[in-house]
Amino acid sequence: MEIKTILTAICLIIGCLFIMMAAIGIVRFPDFFARTHPASKGDTLGQAFILLGLMIYEGLTLITFKLLVIVVLVLIANPTATFFLAKAADVSGVRPEKGIKEIDLTVGEDAASSTGKKVSGGDSAS
């Protein structure tokens, strides 16, 4: 077996792994803003790896250049489209789920404001 075929198979396996993980994440994540992460990053990297495997299999021809153009185009366009989607959802009033928002924002602010007083009091006492 040639070394070219082995490299192609490795790239295809990595790409299929990323694409399946992205699809499972899209099905299982609880929130719209959580679902944008596998849709933008995992999917883009998976298709880049699969098309890189095809480029290694083909060699150095015009087809390789076309595949490179497709890879660069999707690497630019897919995260941009997902960013516009998240921005449009934010403008039209979609908010994250309640549990995620409480963990990130309110608990952090309350903890910082309340522990600031306690820490200053503890410093003066010690």
Partner: peptide, 20 residues
């Protein structure tokens, strides 16, 4: 927006599928 997100993902997978 969930439906548009899924349509975007299906479109990207269709590009890979056509090349394959």
């Amino acid at each position: 927006f969930d439906r548009v997100l899924a349509a975007n993902v299906i479109g990207t997978k269709a590009v890979v599928l056509i090349a394959l």
